[in-house]
Design a binder for these strands. Structure first.
Length: 617
RNA sequence: GCACCGGUAGCUCAGCUGGAUAGAGCGCUGCCCUCCGAAGGCAGAGGUCGUGAGUUCGAAUCUCGCCCGGUGCACCA
């Protein structure tokens, strides 16, 4: 059992025996003792002074004496201002260290027989992935790893938005202006190739709109429809969508294409497949660079008509109701939400209809206990409505639904990651850039010079990707974050490479153990554990509870911050104490073993974030 | 207007199931490689934890009001 839990139970019992009052052991507060005080763990005594009918210090002393008597792991205690500081015996710490080193899966939990689906990425097929996707992907994939570490069977999925007006824009632009060009003929990465036609379409459409604004038709539209306080510029800005739907030639062509697609026109379908194929090939490359994968892909072209049966079901259960015009609604006003359409009067689906249908279809297929949707926080309301509706429909999996919502990634000067503004940070460019900088920095240092070219490249890649991934994951998902391109590839301070560096140091030690044939078994005879060693042990002990908390809260940033904290403590340890030239052979063996344990846990925890450790850097 | 989220050092972020003097990193000022890799360590400057009240022995943390910022409130997806 974890020492913290032991202490909680012991305090709970002590209070009961001494003062005859029962306290829930989980409510006993056990904190690591701050550095300025003597001890390893501190217990807050204030909650017990009432039942003890004593001063905080007197009660603390009494409880301390009681604990020391009954709990063998406690070496000594002291009392400061109502805080009971406990010192844990070296025997316990020795045992912990040995158990970490002996257990390659330390911190992980055995299979729990439960299954969870994590849906992430879910891109559109009309443009390449950008920084926003990267946050989504890293959150989804690290969450998957964390859930797996606590015992779940994880099914990683994405729903690809492969249909609709957007992809038709790319298709149309390519047909009209493409002159048969292909990714191969132009040498452009294939998803970017498709995205370029989308951009071209938007440009052409803008030109058409500007020209239209000069026509008599436009003038009369402005005359008849503008609000009193609107000048021409602001009116036409607002009017853009309406224009595109009602007046634009290109708009008409796109809608015509979408209709043909929906009617399964063979030529259009073939074109659609070709262009989406290009996009998928490009995505595949980016996913590979990011080191992520999926177990199951869903395509919106297969799911967008789902959900009509669930509407029938909802009507028969009176969860939904029908309005006079035939449209179907769900009323969630008593849950603090609004009424929501789930089926149009003409019988066609809306956004939520397909999500309802997809949820049921997927559960039928996957039978998971939990379903996690990694989707930007703009859709918070949508998911509240979706989950509440599924709950009312009595769907058996409704209690296990979770929206992992994340905030916008902003650029330092406040630009949004949108294609239109042209300030978008492209995923592939970013990946290339971080690796380039890592390579440059490593070359300057020259530490990796003895490695082969491939090994070097692989190490640099790990450093660059480690920097990027850590930078993004360390911020709590729900906060919007500022992405500073320069800082993101910084290799000093609170960064991925800082953590990797401590691992590389440890790796060097391990190689030396190997080479010099050092016997570490006498580590257990080391008697005088130093504060710098103790704080590492305390941190190691915490690993599994951090992973569990991260899984419960779907929060990878906890693991990132844990890793950084552990690395920081290791650097301090390294600086303050000698390992190889330690005072005694026992101290050397102990510190080597401790280093091994730290290296193992660092590799494991960073692994949960998808960050790989370099051997040298 | 209503709802949700955020507001902690110049900047980027931890801490938020109430607990000891509010922590890191970057940047700034200085130190530390004749000893295991200095992508490291140490020290200093820098904070009315948005704001006002309340609860409490104790509030960055809980409650309420207000201010600022963001997002959502489509028979769009």
């Amino acid at each position: 059992m974890n020492i913290v839990t032991t202490l909680q139970n012991a305090v709970s019992q002590a209070v009961e025996q001494l003062y005859g009052d029962s306290t829930e052991s989980s409510k006993v507060l056990v904190n690591p003792t701050p550095p300025d005080f003597t001890g390893d763990y501190s217990i807050v005594i204030f909650p017990f002074v009432k039942v003890a009918k004593k001063s905080p210090d007197a009660a603390a002393a009494e409880i301390g004496a009681h604990l020391t008597e009954y709990i063998s792991e406690i070496k000594s205690f002291n009392v400061v201002k109502g805080f009971l500081n406990l010192e844990i015996s070296d025997t316990y710490w020795q045992g912990l260290l040995q158990s970490v080193v002996a257990d390659p899966s330390f911190g992980r939990l055995p299979k729990n027989g439960k299954k969870v689906m994590v849906e992430y990425s879910s891109p559109n097929t009309n443009k390449p992935l950008h920084l926003g996707h990267i946050r989504n992907i890293l959150l989804g994939s690290s969450c998957s790893s964390i859930l797996e570490a606590v015992g779940y069977e994880v099914v990683k999925t994405q729903i690809i938005n492969d249909r609709g007006v957007a992809i038709c824009k790319s298709m149309l632009a390519w047909l009209k202006f493409g002159e048969g060009k292909t990714p191969e003929s132009t040498g452009i990465k294939s998803d970017h190739f498709v995205g370029d036609w989308y951009v071209l379409f938007e440009q052409k459409s803008k030109v058409e709109y500007e020209a239209w604004q000069e026509t008599e038709e436009a003038t009369s539209v402005f005359q008849s429809k503008h609000k009193p306080d609107q000048d021409e510029t602001t009116f036409f800005k607002d009017f853009k969508n309406k224009w595109f739907n009602d007046y634009s030639k290109l708009g008409a062509e796109v809608r015509d294409m979408l209709l043909k697609w929906e009617a399964h026109d063979p030529e259009i379908l073939a074109l659609w497949k070709k262009m989406n194929g290009w996009v998928y090939a490009g995505f595949e490359k980016t996913y590979g660079d990011l080191g992520v994968s999926f177990d199951k892909l869903y395509y919106e072209s297969d799911t967008y008509l789902l959900g009509k049966d669930i509407v029938e079901d909802g009507l028969s259960k009176s969860v939904f109701f029908k309005k006079d015009d035939g449209s179907v609604w769900v009323d969630l006003t008593d849950a603090g939400h609004d009424q929501k359409v789930v089926l149009r009067a003409d019988g066609t689906s809306v956004y939520i209809t397909q999500d309802l249908g997809t949820a049921r279809m997927r559960h039928h297929e996957l039978k998971c206990d939990r379903y996690v949707y990694v989707v930007a926080d703009e859709q918070n309301y949508h998911f509240q409505v979706l989950f509440e509706t599924l709950k009312r429909l009595g769907e058996p999996y409704a209690a296990g639904l979770h929206h992992l919502s994340y905030g916008l990634v902003e650029l330092p000067k406040g630009g949004r990651m949108k294609t239109r503004e042209g300030t978008v940070v492209d995923a592939d460019d970013l990946i290339e850039e971080v690796i380039r900088i890592a390579t440059e920095q490593s070359k300057d240092r020259g530490e990796a010079e003895t490695l082969s070219a491939e090994e070097k490249q692989e190490n640099f890649r790990r450093v660059g990707m480690g920097a990027l991934k850590f930078f993004i994951i360390k911020v709590h998902a729900k906060k919007k974050m500022v992405f500073n391109p320069e800082e993101s590839v910084d290799l000093q301070g609170q960064t991925g490479p800082y953590i990797q560096y401590s691992y590389v140091r440890i790796n060097g030690l391990m190689q030396r153990i190997e080479k010099e044939g050092i016997d570490c078994s006498i580590a257990t005879q080391y008697a005088n554990i130093q504060p710098q060693e103790k704080e590492l042990l305390v941190a190691l002990l915490d690993y599994s509870s951090v992973v569990q908390k991260a899984a419960e809260e779907y929060d990878p940033s906890l693991v990132a911050n844990f890793s950084y904290d552990l690395a920081k403590k290791y650097h301090r340890f390294w600086h303050d104490l000698s390992v190889f030239s330690a005072e005694t052979p026992e101290a050397r063996a102990f510190r080597l073993t401790l280093s091994r344990a730290v290296g193992q846990v660092l590799k494991s925890s960073m692994g949960l974030l998808g960050v790989e450790m370099p051997e040298r850097m």
